[in-house]
Design a protein around this nucleic acid. Structure first.
Lengths: 186, 186
DNA sequence: TATCCCATGTAACGAGTTACATGATTCT
DNA sequence: AGAATCATGTAACTCGTTACATGGGATA
């Protein structure tokens, strides 16, 4: 199981929605809020080159003229296999503690590629981990908090509130995913 | 106003609490939850070297023997000036949209170096920005949400819930900071 | 003295940033 | 034809990662 950068997975996930050019992907990054990827060409084009070199994506068709211009890309069979195996990974403790954003990215692309049961499985694995994490933070804060300066306490509380928000969201999302019938969903 | 990496500011902020060795700083990163900095020597020692070369920190005293061993570091006058000017920066729209974590880091070190009024000023500037941001996300979601697949909606909602949690926290923190008397605080 | 942990350092590598370059297409 | 925009590409630089190296002090 090859490790790839988060940007790589984001590009693969977007290309799984259909063939797109590098420019299309840049536009998506530039216009979608809550997406933290840079839309700079110096990030995206080299990443696409890498994925192409590794055989995960390919140009959709040979351009007739030799010039530049739009160059739509699509997943190869191996690229899709790789994406799917990434999407199927269940949340780990380490990810919940240090990298929730990547976890959410994985979730974002899930419905378009995997059956609803995968979403449920993912969230069901997520839930106890985030609950434990929140509880651990609260224990830490109960002990260390009183000794911290006001702004330090506020800073810690902001992080704690963020984790609590995630926890509530996971529980709600799990209920919703379970309720949603296996068919009818897009 | 020189731009530094977030790690640099974190190190300066920690050293502002008193002289510490690189190893002490590594321990802090390794044992404090919610702190995303790596405790790897390959990150910290080069960063400390950089700060020392730039004249922001210095070894606390010349070691007698020529060997290795602990090497406590402290802020120089210029280092402290630099830290203070960073801490005094007010939140910007761009930071609120893409880099709240750095904003929170700045806040975390504030009480130890600046008067309580600075904390209030910081939070008072933060509040309208995060409120606007949350509202913009809601507008975007009202338009784009219905066309998204279930997991995509869930992912967006998790981000939105996170921003809402920050917004509530900022409002509460601002009330608390205003209520706290100018004296008595640590 | 052998072994472990404390403590600092470095080298190779990967990946993102900024800034610039270049060609194609569309609009006026 | 000129300007703006679409679209891709590259080079220099910075920084963090992993993995390894080194040396001192404490303990068995």
């Amino acid at each position: 199981m090859v490790e790839r950068s988060v940007l790589d997975w984001a590009l693969l996930g977007l290309l799984d929605q259909g063939p797109q050019s590098g420019y299309d992907l840049r536009r998506t990054f530039a216009t979608t809020p809550l997406v933290r990827f840079s839309d700079s060409p110096g990030a995206i084009y080299p990443a696409l080159r890498r994925l192409e070199r590794h055989g995960l994506i390919e140009a959709v068709a040979a351009q007739p003229a030799g010039g530049r211009g739009r160059r739509p890309l699509q997943l190869t069979a191996e690229g899709r296999r790789s994406l799917l195996s990434w999407l199927r990974r269940l949340p780990t403790r380490a990810e919940v503690e240090r990298d929730v954003e990547t976890l959410i990215l994985r979730l974002a692309f899930m419905s378009q590629a995997l059956p609803p049961s995968s979403l449920v499985r993912f969230l069901a694995a997520f839930e106890p981990l985030i609950t434990d994490h929140r509880a651990a933070l609260e224990r830490f804060y109960a002990e260390a908090g009183p000794g911290m300066p006001l702004s330090g306490r506020l800073a810690f509380e902001s992080g704690l509130e963020g984790v609590r928000a995630y926890e509530k969201w996971v529980k709600r999302a799990l209920r919703r995913a379970r309720r949603t019938p296996e068919r009818s969903r897009r």
